[in-house]
Design a protein around this nucleic acid. Structure first.
Lengths: 313, 313
DNA sequence: TCATGTCCATAGGCTGTTCCTATCGTGGGG
DNA sequence: CCCCACGATAGGAACAGCCTATGGACATGA
């Protein structure tokens, strides 16, 4: 049984006329006759009574017709559904991102993406890089924005550098504080407001302080991004945050850059190496890079160079 | 899109392994790969992620799978339904017959047919030949048992002679009556119980009397077969009925044959010339002729010889 | 590190199918 | 009585599907 044969069969069933049916399906009349015959032979039953000038469905034809129609309709549906995915009219992207990026970068990017593809569902998982990497490996995420280097590098993940963020010090606009760029070592004498465990920023900041030979002092610790900024506003201390976050945090925060070499962190987009991300996810990747594309160096998760892992058209 | 491709696709989707899927559908692995590729190309989307040792459905594949399964199931259903008709496990026969045959011949035949094909629905229309011919032409019946010659002969109908029936006179067993064969002309002095208009037997009997030069006298008229026999039993008069009916009517009826040449009528099976009867109807035809097959002369409705209208195997 | 095995993709040749054009056979209508 | 309409048939060209053989990439174990 072939789809063609069913198409021909339905055409004849609807026109009750071989020649006209052949025209309708754009095939010669003998070809159509032949295919109908082949179908009849396969099914072991005549589908049409072919009395002179009076083509009519037999009972077998009558039995076949509704199912044939349904099969053809289903085939059309199948094509259509796949097409919707291809054309990004439908779909889903599961993106993981650290809280700082959810605050800073993502709103703008997701807005742009959603405007272009309103049918695509966006699922955001807000976690530290460690959790995100695990979720990626499980297949629970299509992509994750992560801070490089990865806490648990693995060749199973491919990362593509997205951007470098400068970290800055924020403090209460009301409180007296340094106007000039500060050095990390200056933080030895500051009271810090610190994120909860799991934030990449926490690990990064603490590591930087230790590299300078001191252990940072926290007045408050454990909050999420918004809470930390609120505590800083309230004068409880200073915090080290990405410049992008600081910029968006408002005027009642004083933003102080770090003196060179400062602190930078590299944000990358990570995905499993073994499966190509869904079409919609690749499209989000494209939007992500076109919105904010200061760096496009490909790096494998383990630190090895992984060529050719770019965006698939 | 081809059925084969969907079969292959489902096999790969279920095994997540090209080589094993190929074995399962009894095709070489390259052929299967090629068909999957062709399907992907036609749909414009990859259906599988082919990472080393990790074949997985893409979102497009995920979208296609349920519909593909449904299409294949429907195709199976279509084959099955047609097959049921072919194998006479299901179907319908619409048969028209005059009341005398419904009483005499049909019970036995239909019983035999039903025993062989319990899934076939039997619809009997009990009418005179005139009505039956009209219903046949309308397509409301597959077959009709009719009395020849047809009241309205037409080349649109094909008739096949089935049997000749002798007509006999029945009278009450209680009442005195002739023991020897009677002649038609003897009926001039009898009180007749007569069927309602529409019975072929009525037309035949009345015509026979008129041919003998007299108009028959009815004590009761208008009843159906059973009623007429009841009236005869009650001694209201005699009736002319087919011998087969008379035999089954019981012992309280006296059956008197007609003297030669007697009265015979020819029963034929009629169907439309332009469409082959459904499979189940042809099977009933076969049973009909094998149960009671004294005559098989083919005759066209108009009286012309119509060759090759036999039972299709 | 190298040999080996697994697994999917590719290449080339063969066969069967599908399609075409041309033609036939048969009823029905002018 | 001839012609027309319509489906069936015939024969040949183009194509698709399948096969075997082979390639290439990765994983595994000595």
């Amino acid at each position: 049984m072939q789809f063609q044969q069913l198409v021909y069969f339905v055409a004849v069933a609807e026109t009750l006329h071989f020649t006209r049916a052949a025209e309708r399906v754009h095939v010669s009349q003998p070809s159509l006759s032949q295919q109908i015959r082949a179908l009849e032979k396969e099914l072991g039953a005549e589908l049409f009574g072919r009395a002179r000038g009076n083509v009519a469905l037999t009972d077998a034809g009558e039995a076949l017709l509704p199912t044939a129609r349904r099969i053809l309709a289903d085939a059309e549906t199948a094509r259509h559904e796949v097409q919707e995915l291809v054309q990004l009219r439908r779909g889903r992207v599961r993106l993981g991102a650290p809280p700082s990026l959810c605050t800073g970068l993502l709103p703008e990017v997701l807005r742009a993406f959603h405007d272009q593809h309103p049918g695509i569902e966006l699922l955001i998982e807000e976690s530290g890089s460690h959790d995100l990497v695990r979720e990626l490996a499980r297949g629970a995420l299509d992509f994750a924005l992560v801070v490089l280097p990865l806490p648990t590098p693995s060749p199973a993940l491919t990362t593509v550098e997205l951007l470098h963020e400068d970290l800055v010090v924020v403090s209460s606009a009301a409180a007296p504080g340094p106007r000039r760029p500060v050095r990390i070592s200056d933080l030895r004498h500051e009271q810090l407001v610190m994120f909860r465990h799991g934030y990449d920023l926490r690990e990064l900041t603490v590591a930087a302080c230790r590299a300078e030979g001191f252990e940072p002092v926290f007045t408050v610790e454990g909050g999420e991004m918004d809470a930390v900024l609120g505590f800083v506003r309230a004068g409880l201390g200073v915090a080290v945050v990405p410049s992008m976050v600081a910029e968006q945090a408002g005027r009642d925060l004083r933003v102080t850059p770090l003196a060179p070499p400062g602190l930078r962190r590299t944000i990358a987009l990570a995905h499993r190496s073994d499966v190509a991300p869904p079409r919609a996810a690749r499209e989000l990747q494209r939007v992500l890079f076109s919105t904010r594309a200061p760096s496009r160096t490909d790096r494998a998760g383990g630190g090895r160079t992984a060529g050719g892992v770019g965006i698939r058209a």
